[in-house]
C-alpha cells in the first residue's frame, strides 16, 4: 500500500515559536485520515505547509512523486491538493451558484472573450454544480448570497465548492465546527461519499466523536510533534492521548 502524500521531518517556526516540529506522516488514499490535537498544536500550520500557504523551513512533502515545498499555492491546488479553511467566508458578495462556478474553470481573458471553448466549459461546470448541490440537498440555496447563509450551510457549501475543482486530496480544516449537532451525521455521510468517489481525505477537527466516527486512521499532534497514531479504537483507548489531548488525568 503506497502513500499518496508523505511528509518527512517538516519544520515550521514563526520567529521563536515552533509550530511544526519535525512532523513525518504517510497518507494512504484508502483511509479517511484525521489529524487531531489541542489548540495551537500546529494542525492548521501543517495544512498550510502542504498547500503552500506557508513555506516549510525544512523537510519534504511529496505528493504523487512531486515535491510540494517551494511550489506556489495555486499550482499545488492544480496538482489536486485542495484545502478548506478553518473559518470559511467563501466569496461573500457572490451567490452560492457563483461560488461553485469559480472553481475548476479556466481564467484566461482571451479564452473567455473569444472561442466556443468557454461555452462548453460553462455548460459542463453548470451540470457539475447542479449534481453536487443536489447530492447535498442544497438546490434551494443556489441564488442566496454566501454571506446570508447560516454557518453550517456555509461549511457544506465550502466543501462542495472545493470539490468542483476535482481534487485528488482534500484537506478539511475543522469541517464540523459550527455545524448544528443534528447535521453532523449528514456531514459524516458527505465525507464518506466523497471518499468513496475516489478523493483522498485528511480532516482536522476538535469534535472527537465525529472524528472517531468518520476517520479510519488518526494522527495525534501536540506542540508540533506527532505523539501517537492508529485506528480510532487505538486512539480512543490510548492513555497518552487522553492525557495530552483530552486533558484527562489518570
Amino acid at each position: 500500500m503506497s502513500a499518496l502524500l508523505s511528509a518527512r521531518d517538516v519544520h515550521k517556526a514563526f520567529g521563536g515559536n515552533t509550530a511544526v516540529d519535525g512532523m513525518s506522516l504517510d497518507l494512504h488514499p484508502d483511509h479517511i485520515t484525521a489529524l487531531i490535537g489541542p489548540n495551537g498544536a500546529g494542525k492548521t500550520t501543517f495544512f498550510n505547509t502542504v498547500t503552500g500557504y506557508e513555506r516549510a523551513d525544512s523537510g519534504s512533502i511529496v505528493f504523487d512523486d512531486k515535491e510540494l515545498i517551494g511550489l506556489q499555492p495555486w499550482r499545488i491546488s492544480r496538482l489536486g491538493v485542495v484545502r478548506t479553511f478553518q473559518t470559511p467566508v467563501g466569496f461573500p458578495s457572490m451567490t452560492v451558484w457563483e461560488n461553485m462556478q469559480v472553481a475548476g474553470a479556466s481564467h484566461s481573458v482571451l479564452r473567455n472573450m473569444l472561442g466556443r471553448r468557454g461555452k462548453n466549459e460553462e455548460g459542463e461546470l453548470s451540470a457539475r454544480t447542479d449534481e453536487i448541490l443536489s447530492d447535498l440537498g442544497l438546490e434551494g440555496i443556489l441564488d442566496t448570497p454566501v454571506d446570508e447563509l447560516p454557518a453550517g450551510e456555509r461549511k457544506l457549501m465550502e466543501i462542495s465548492r472545493q470539490l468542483m475543482s476535482r481534487p485528488r486530496l482534500l484537506l478539511l480544516d475543522e469541517p464540523a465546527a459550527g455545524v448544528n449537532p443534528s447535521s453532523i451525521g449528514l456531514l459524516s455521510n458527505l465525507i464518506r461519499s466523497i471518499h468513496q468517489s475516489g478523493v483522498a481525505l485528511m480532516i482536522i477537527d476538535h469534535n472527537l466523536s465525529f472524528v472517531l466516527d468518520v476517520a479510519d486512521y488518526i494522527h495525534v499532534l501536540a506542540e508540533g510533534r506527532l505523539i501517537a497514531e492508529g485506528t480510532p479504537d487505538e486512539i480512543a483507548s490510548s492513555t497518552l492521548v487522553r492525557q495530552v489531548y483530552m486533558g484527562v488525568d489518570e
Binding site: 498547500t51 500557504y53 499555492p73 495555486w74 499550482r75 491546488s77 492544480r78 485542495v82 484545502r83 478548506t84 479553511f85 470559511p88 467566508v89 467563501g90 466569496f91 461573500p92 458578495s93 457572490m94 457563483e98 461560488n99 462556478q101 469559480v102 472553481a103 475548476g104 474553470a105 481564467h107 465548492r161 472545493q162 468542483m164 475543482s165
Partner: peptide, 17 residues
C-alpha cells in the same frame, strides 16, 4: 467570477487554483 472571487477572498481563490 475569478476576478470577483480574488477580490472577495484571495486565499480562497488561490485554493481553487
Amino acid at each position: 467570477r475569478a476576478l470577483r472571487a480574488m477580490r472577495d477572498n484571495e486565499p480562497a481563490a488561490v485554493s481553487l487554483g
